[in-house]
Structures are given as structure tokens and as C-alpha cells.
Design a protein around this nucleic acid. Structure first.
Lengths: 232, 232
DNA sequence: CGGGACTTTGAAACCCTTCAATGCCAGTGG
DNA sequence: CCACTGGCATTGAAGGGTTTCAAAGTCCCG
């Protein structure tokens, strides 16, 4: 089902490897090599569950490569994607001891690092740097969820799809990019934006015909008129 | 415009005053009286701004009484409410040093405690308990935003309004309550659920006529059929 | 080369938005 | 005391966007 490997220094991954933001005085770069000795890396298959809803929350996870979706399935069978995790994103927070949503790998060869919650939290008790990094990670998570709320709050499907494309372009690249390779299918986009698959497809076709974007195949998107995407 | 008062022991408020959740071993109750000596309490008027978008993020805030909305106004003039803060909720996190949204008091006599960010973060550096509480607060924030995403992800307006009523009932009371007093107007509900005011009104009327809820005046809602509200 | 999943397109029904008007209520001033 | 005003809430009707159902087209992988 999956391959598992203990962490090795050469493939070192850190829970967070960036500057301490949100603080007025920019502190030195925080490298938490100490955390990596606790992490375990697994490779997941397409659609494979990383953890299930209502399972005890025993670890934080960080996406090394690939994409992860947090979902919930309603009683009527409809699926909702609550969050989409890209490389370097951290997930697995739970405020009640168990996960509120299930986490699934989107594609085969999705590599995930798992950090045992208790050990990390115990570490944070003693090491302010660890606590600080945890805090920044949470801030990023909040920021990501707020962005998604802003997208879901838009009125028309074209606006939602347009904002989604921009969001992906920004998150998948360090600089403002003109080309995006969509990490998920139309179905996933639909469940992420709370619109039907057909509407997703029609919106993309619409944006293409308006000359706002260009499509190469189904996953490759070129952003031609960024301003039009922002306004809807 | 507002009244300001330094903190006094008699009206002691804590940044967080609950058990450490999300951990396997339940630790003793955490009372952070030390943080309160740094907090400043202000009373805000109806629609008064607590902080503005893109202002430097200099403090965390906790709602003591009343309601706060985090909003953004689009270029087309439409307003979106990204988050709704009720008593005991903490807000004001920023991942880039400045606030992403503006915060406004909903009603007159909204009391807010402000905790200077730098001092709290400095405290957290030295006191693991502070860091721990900060972490739990962030978890609650993430949980709240995910709930809102779940609501915005529903299809029909009736489902959205129904979920919103349940959410308010759960958040405004410790136990599952049958009666809710809505803290915000129809306009605010509309901007929070990303539907028009008229649709909010029609949805409520619809739910009333189906016997799912009862309305006393415009703000008082009695939940009659909780199950129907959950399913939509 | 075939099967299956994914994507696109069409048409009808439905829901929501928009525009418009009315109703309601509290606060204010005559 | 009453009329008036402004903000909020409700209701109606028309138009437009989205969902749903259906079908065809495309891509990928075994």
C-alpha cells in the first residue's frame, strides 16, 4: 500500500523552514533539524487515506511532494473538500483530540512526513523556537483557510474558478506565475469550490473564450489577464 | 468614541481559560493571570472599527461581550464577512505582520480585551504554558474557520441558513440549545453566508413555514427540528 | 486496443439574484 | 401626541446562473 522510511539527514525535511513572520523584529532563520529526527516519511497512493475522520489525532503532517485533500462526506453522499494541501503545507491540527476531516493523497507518489504530536508538543514545552515555529505554521493555516473562505464567498462560478486559479498560481510558485499546472481534477475542484463539475468545466471554457486564460490539455493553465481573474 | 480602562483584577479576563485540549494527557487547568496584566479593555460602538485592513498587527484581541466581524470590501463594493467572533473568541492573528481583514464591533457596548502581540510572544518564549495556550487558541480558530467553510460549501440557501443557525446555537451556549438570539442582522448574515439579504429572509420564512424553526421577533429563533436543520 | 475515469457540451428545471415595493420599528422633532 | 425619517425586514416578479440529467468526446493505462 505504501512505503515507509525513517528519516535520513540527506532528505532532511523540517516542519517549518522559514523566517519567523508576523513579528515586528525579524529573527534569524529557524531551522528545526531537531524535529526531523522524529519525523517519519511515507509515500501514499492515489486516493489513499492518510488519516480518517474521528481518528485520534496522533500526528502533524507535512506535504513533501504531491497534494493532499481534507474532506468530509455528507449524509446525502456529497463530498466537500475543506482544505487543499500543497508541498510545504502542514496539516493535521485538531482541537478536540481527534481529526475533524479525513485526509487523502490526491495522486500516487504523494510523500508525507509525519511528526508525532505528543513529542512535538513536549518539545515545544522546552524549546521556545519549536513553539514559535508551531505558531507560525498555525498562522499560515488560518491564512489559507481565510483565503478559501474569500473564494467561496464570491457569487458566480466564474469568479470562484478564477480566484481558485490565482490562488493555485500563487501557492504553487514563489513568484507570481503565469503558468499553473492544476494539481487536482475537475471533480476535486468542484468539491473544493462547492459547485458542480459541469459548472467548473463551463467556467474554464468561458474564461478561455474570453481570452482570460489559455488551456493546454486539461491541467495546464496559462494566465493571460490576471486582472480579469481578480475581478471576476 | 470609546472608553478605555486598564485591567483590574475584579474584571479579570484571560486570553484562554480552559483545559489543554488536543493533548492525550489532560493537564491541569491553565489560568494565565499573568497575561491579563498586559491586556487593555476597550468598549466599542456599533460598527466601530477595531482595526483596519493592512494595519500593522500589533495585538491579539479577545471578545469579552458583544460580537465582532472580520470583513473585507471588494472593489465592486460588496462586503464579505470572513469570520464572526463571539464572547471568548480570540482574533487578530496575522501571518505577514499586518491584518488581512478589518475588524468591527457589531453592536454598541462591545467589550474587547487587547493583548500586545510582542509582549505575549515574548512571554511565550519563556513560558511554555503561554505558548501552549496560544496554540490551543489557534486550533480553535482553525476549527471555527473550517466549520464556516463547511457551511459555505452547502448548496442551497436554506441549507446554509440552517447550518448557520445550528452553528450559532452551539457557539452561543455550552449545551445544545433550542433557543438562539441572533447576534447579527440579516444583512450581516447575508454577507457571512455569501447570499443576498432577500434570500436570507426567504430562507428563514421557509424554515418557519416548514415547522423547522420558530421566530419570535426578528432575532429570537427557536429550533424545533434540529435534525431537519442538519440535513438541510 | 479496449475499458474506465475524466472532461466537455446540451437542454430543461430549479434556485438565487436583482430590482422594486411594502411593512415594521425606534428615535426624533414638530 | 403625531408625523416623519432612516434602518432593517419581508414579499413579489423577472431575469439570469447553476444544478441536474443525459450524452458524447477525450485521455490514460493496462
Amino acid at each position: 500500500m505504501y512505503t515507509q522510511s525513517t528519516h535520513t539527514p540527506s532528505t532532511a525535511t523540517r516542519l517549518q523552514d522559514r523566517n519567523w513572520q508576523g513579528s515586528a523584529r525579524p529573527p534569524p532563520e529557524v531551522r528545526l533539524r531537531s524535529l526531523d529526527s522524529f519525523s517519519t516519511t511515507k509515500t501514499y497512493c492515489r486516493n489513499q487515506e492518510i488519516y480518517g475522520q474521528e481518528q485520534p489525532a496522533e500526528a502533524f503532517y507535512k506535504v513533501l511532494s504531491g497534494t493532499v485533500r481534507l474532506c468530509i462526506t455528507r449524509v446525502d453522499g456529497r463530498r466537500q473538500i475543506i482544505d487543499l494541501l500543497l508541498p510545504d503545507d502542514v496539516f493535521g491540527f485538531a482541537s478536540r483530540g481527534e481529526y475533524d476531516y479525513s485526509a487523502e493523497a490526491v495522486e500516487t507518489n504523494t510523500r508525507i512526513a509525519a511528526y508525532p504530536r505528543r513529542r512535538i508538543e513536549a518539545l515545544a514545552e522546552g524549546d521556545p523556537q519549536v513553539a514559535r515555529v508551531l505558531h507560525e505554521i498555525m498562522c499560515r493555516c488560518v491564512s489559507r483557510l481565510q483565503s478559501q473562505l474569500r473564494i467561496l464567498g464570491r457569487i458566480t462560478a466564474r469568479e470562484k474558478v478564477g480566484s481558485f486559479l490565482l490562488e493555485m498560481a500563487d501557492r504553487l510558485s514563489d513568484k507570481p506565475a503565469r503558468k499553473v499546472i492544476l494539481p487536482i481534477s475537475r471533480y476535486d475542484i468542484a468539491d473544493y469550490l462547492a459547485i458542480s463539475v459541469e459548472t467548473v468545466s463551463r467556467s474554464l471554457t468561458d474564461l478561455k473564450q474570453r481570452g482570460v486564460i489559455a488551456l493546454v490539455g486539461t491541467r495546464r493553465v496559462k494566465i493571460i489577464d490576471r486582472h480579469a481573474l481578480e475581478d471576476g
